[in-house]
């Protein structure tokens, strides 16, 4: 039983990271209907920025600040130079998808070129001494930090989207871009902001993974990126609470499978879970199943 509780805790901290990345996928998809494949690599950028910031001896808040701002700039730039021109030309959606894949390959290989493909240890920032709780459950400081900081980020995001003018505009654009434009919403600006927010969240996730795992490499974004996207789809793509729930589910399922079955089956679980959920509810847990109009 205590082992089970322990795995739940581990699953939550892994899941909160998936959730942070999934948020970026779901927000971008909700607004421009694009699977931004480069998003997982933005998370890698965040991890590397965090790595160098820690090595430079910067204090923790500043590290997180940089690891969110730099990826945000990357996201903004990619959107501006790669996706926007395609949108302006009304290119087919699959062209945008391939461009995103191209951007992803570009970032990965740039990372390999600059930092070599070898994994490197992330600076140890916190003591690994776990804190013991009743029932034999232990939580490490990085896990607490991860859970606390992701909760703060998610709550802020929810409040931002619900109550600010920009947040309302984002929701409007995701429901009907044309109508929003007619109402005076500057769509390009909203899209840029969406990329900035999504990328900043992924950057934060990158640093947290660096602290948790502690190991980073240029290709570290591929699998978590993919799984975070899967998490977004499980929750219902385009739906923000869906991404949070999907990420948590995914982290939980993976941790439990690793602990009680076998770590080699771990990667299959993410996708198995996805397929089971899609077969039961084809548009994800929170996704609205829109009846096709005849």
């Amino acid at each position: 039983m205590s082992q089970f509780l322990q795995q739940i805790v581990n699953g939550l901290s892994l899941g909160s990271i998936y959730a942070l990345i999934a948020l970026g996928y779901t927000m971008v998809y909700g607004i421009i209907r694009l699977i931004n494949f480069a998003h997982g690599d933005i998370y890698m950028v965040g991890a590397f920025v965090g790595y160098f910031a820690f090595r430079a001896g910067l204090p923790l808040p500043l590290v997180f600040f940089l690891a969110m701002v730099v990826p945000a700039l990357f996201g903004l730039t990619i959107e501006f130079f790669a996706y926007r021109p395609l949108r302006k030309r009304n290119a087919p959606r699959i062209a945008a998808l391939i461009t995103a894949i191209g951007m992803s390959l570009f970032l990965e290989n740039l990372g390999i070129l600059l930092f070599s493909p070898d994994p490197r240890p992330f600076p140890r920032v916190f003591t690994n001494e776990p804190i013991h709780f009743a029932g034999g459950v232990t939580i490490s400081i990085p896990q607490i930090l991860t859970l606390a900081f992701t909760s703060v980020l998610m709550i802020s995001l929810t409040l931002f989207i619900r109550f600010t003018k920009t947040g309302k505009a984002m929701r409007a654009v995701s429901q009907d871009a044309e109508a929003a434009q007619l109402m005076g919403v500057n769509i390009d600006r909203i899209i840029s902001i969406t990329f900035v927010i999504g990328s900043a969240l992924a950057g934060a996730a990158g640093v947290m993974v660096g602290i948790l795992i502690p190991r980073i490499e240029p290709l570290m974004g591929i699998m978590p990126g993919l799984k975070a996207f899967v998490a977004a789809v499980i929750g219902g793509i385009g739906v923000i609470p869906g991404a949070m729930l999907g990420g948590m589910l995914m982290g939980m399922a993976e941790t439990l499978v690793t602990a009680f079955i076998s770590s080699t089956w771990r990667d299959a679980i993410a996708f198995g879970l996805l397929i089971v959920i899609l077969l039961i509810k084809p548009s994800g847990i929170f996704g609205s199943s829109s009846r096709t109009k005849v």
Binding site: A82, P85, L86, R89, A91, P92, A95, A96, I98, T99, I101, G102, M103, S104, L105, F106, E108, N109
Partner: peptide
């Protein structure tokens, strides 16, 4: 290679 791909898609999306 990756850069070429992105540029190709931007100029010839179909």
């Amino acid at each position: 290679y990756a850069g070429t791909l992105v540029v190709l898609m931007i100029f010839r999306p179909q």
